[in-house]
């Protein structure tokens, strides 16, 4: 498996990449909460949010196509809401269609909810993509630890991050082995094969976990992973934080 499968583009260099992970995490969270709290009809505030996040994406030199492709993960949910629109509470009717015997009318209230949800979701996912594509997961975890997330969770997550590559490789090898031997078969049989693969993977993972623990004991593992790189707030973090905060606050005050 290619290593860039996870945190792709996080090794580029830009102003955003150089910020402290804590700054970026808090900024993303503030941005998302601010978007979620913005009232439905407040289009100017959403426009300001969009300007902010797109300019940051441009500064971070992320390929636009990659960002758009990644943002499509919200699509199933947008579709789900779109399906419900015709059934929403009655209001002023924006249009009505006849689908076979069914008269479906779409109300403005319903369309507003759809637009609102879609815009909010897209803004939030852009900021999440910005965060994850400009920060190495290892640094982000270190930052989260300093922000007060319990050490145990951070350690488990760091172990998980290290072994994702090993186990995904193992899973892909098993899949290749299955695909080169199996000629299809019924659906039930396929599920059974998959179950056997997952079961084998579980047993191997469990045994691997035990031998990792034994290896850690041999080497005198304390309760911390030490690394040379230290995080530090720099002047750039302070100026970014102030500028970012001002934009968010002004979007709340001016357009409320």
């Amino acid at each position: 498996m290619k290593h860039s499968f996870i945190d792709k583009y996080s090794d580029l260099d830009s102003l955003i990449h150089r910020l402290d992970p804590r700054t970026k995490f808090i900024a993303s969270l503030v941005f998302i909460i601010s978007v979620v709290l913005t009232p439905t009809s407040n289009w100017r505030a959403f426009a300001l949010h969009l300007c902010l996040v797109t300019s940051l994406l441009i500064i971070a030199k992320l390929p636009p196509f990659y960002v758009l492709k990644r943002s499509l993960v919200i699509f199933p949910f947008v579709l789900l809401v779109a399906v419900f629109i015709p059934f929403l509470k009655p209001g002023e009717i924006a249009g009505s269609y006849n689908i076979w015997l069914w008269q479906v009318s779409v109300t403005y209230a319903g369309l507003l909810i759809l637009a609102n949800v879609a815009v909010k979701a897209w803004l939030c996912i852009f900021s999440l993509i910005l965060l994850s594509a400009t920060t190495k997961l290892v640094d982000l975890l270190k930052g989260l630890k300093q922000l007060g997330i319990p050490k145990v969770i951070i350690l488990i997550l760091s172990f998980m991050y290290r072994y994702i590559f090993v186990l995904v490789d193992e899973a892909m090898r098993m899949r290749q082995a299955r695909d080169s031997r199996s000629f299809g078969g019924g659906r039930l049989r396929q599920l059974k094969t998959l179950g056997n693969m997952i079961g084998t993977l579980f047993i191997r993972s469990y045994e691997r976990g035990e031998s990792i623990y034994a290896a850690m004991l041999c080497r005198g593992f304390g309760d911390e992973i030490r690394s040379l790189r230290q995080l530090g707030f720099k002047r750039i973090d302070a100026s970014f934080g102030v500028a970012f905060g001002l934009v968010i606050i002004s979007s709340a005050i001016i357009f409320w």
Binding site: R162, M197, S205, G209
Partner: peptide, 21 residues
Amino acid sequence: GEKQIPLMGVLAAFIFAAQML
């Protein structure tokens, strides 16, 4: 005890890998 950390980490990675099948 301490064993929690490597074992939970590897098993979380296992669930993650299993979800890719």
